[in-house]
Simulated assay, not measured.
Amino acid sequence: VGELVTSFDMAGVSLTLFWLDDELEELWVAPADTPAYRKGGAVPAERVAPSVVAADAAPDEVGPASEDSRALAVQVAAGFAAVRSVIDEHADELGRIDAVAGDGDHGIGMQRGSHAAAEAASDAVERGAGAGSVLRIAGDAWSDKAGGTSGAIWGAALEALGRVLGDDSRPTGADVVEAVGAATEAVLAFGAVPGDKTMVDALVPFREALRSRVDDGAALPDAWRAAVSAAQDAAQGTAELLPRKGRARTHAEHAVGTVDPGAVSFALIVEAVAP
């Protein structure tokens, strides 16, 4: 059948059992031709020439940026390097947590994403990118290399941050609050809500605490630290929740007592990049 789908470096086999009916049987025996699974007499789809793909998309394109934004881009790239380090430090623990009610690959996925993002951010800075472009380019690299739902989520969140912050000037505290709000909405668009035992359970309290402190006149570093504390508390609080989204939802009560790895990794990241 050709290559089979794998889950990063996970050893062993994945076995799926289901009740077979006439419709499912017809679909199961139908010919298929995909990059990871082939059977029967399916006719391979016409391949698109690489030049056509390159003409349609330029995810790492760098546009004009102000001096202030380019200076901030250096700090953003340093932040991605810090994220890479903290994820490397906690990758095994994140995988252990995820193995309780999932595939056990959250640590590996976050490592692949953060490494790709850090490299892409550094390259973008060398090419003169502004802060918004660095975030966008790094998000695209994270999504491309991490795989899985968390990769897509972090890619969307970083793209939203970059889109709002832009490349024109150094953002104010209010600008950062707006950008974090846009990133939060991008994550919520995937369907999870607070209480589902996902990254959202740490992300939303972080956004709310950051907005509240900035609105009250706090300096951004102080507001960010308060928001980090809220995210950390919320991440630990996910241990008491029943999972309602993702693979963990099928484990129900078995997952109670264990924190959500996505919420924990989010809290680690926002602490690592604190201004």
Rank of each mutant, 00 (worst) to 15 (best):
A230H: 03
L241V: 01
A219P: 05
A234K: 14
V228R: 09
A227V: 06
L210D: 05
R213A: 12
E208D: 11
A235G: 03
D216K: 15
G217S: 08
Q232T: 14
G237P: 03
S212D: 11
T238R: 02
F206A: 05
G237A: 14
P243D: 06
D222F: 04
A209P: 02
V214E: 09
L220G: 08
Q232G: 08
A223G: 03
S229M: 03
R207A: 01
D233S: 13
A227Y: 13
A223P: 05
Q236N: 14
V228F: 07
G237C: 07
A223E: 07
A231S: 10
D216A: 13
A230I: 04
A230D: 06
S212T: 09
V214P: 01
A227P: 12
V214D: 04
F206L: 08
W224S: 01
V214I: 11
G217P: 01
Q236A: 15
R207D: 06
V228D: 08
Q232A: 11
F206V: 02
R244D: 07
A230N: 04
D233V: 14
P221E: 00
Q232D: 11
A218Q: 15
R211D: 11
R207L: 08
G217Y: 08
L220P: 10
P221K: 04
L210W: 11
Q232R: 15
A227C: 09
S229R: 15
A227T: 09
E240V: 11
A231N: 05
P221A: 03
R213N: 07
L241D: 02
P221H: 06
S229W: 01
A223Y: 05
D215N: 14
T238C: 02
A219M: 12
L210P: 01
F206M: 06
L241Y: 05
P243G: 13
E240Q: 15
L241E: 00
S212W: 01
A219F: 04
V228E: 10
L220D: 09
R211F: 03
A231Y: 05
W224T: 05
R213L: 07
A218G: 08
R207H: 12
R213W: 01
Q236G: 15
L241N: 00
R213K: 10
V214A: 07
R211T: 10
S229Y: 01
A231I: 00
L242Q: 14
E208P: 00
A209G: 10
A219D: 11
A218M: 10
R225F: 08
E208K: 15
A230M: 02
G237H: 12
D215F: 05
L242C: 04
A239C: 09
G217M: 12
R207P: 00
E240W: 09
V214L: 03
E208Y: 00
T238N: 03
V214N: 13
P243W: 05
V214W: 06
V228K: 09
W224K: 00
P243I: 04
P243H: 03
W224F: 04
G237R: 04
G217V: 08
A223R: 07
L242R: 14
P221Y: 12
S212Q: 12
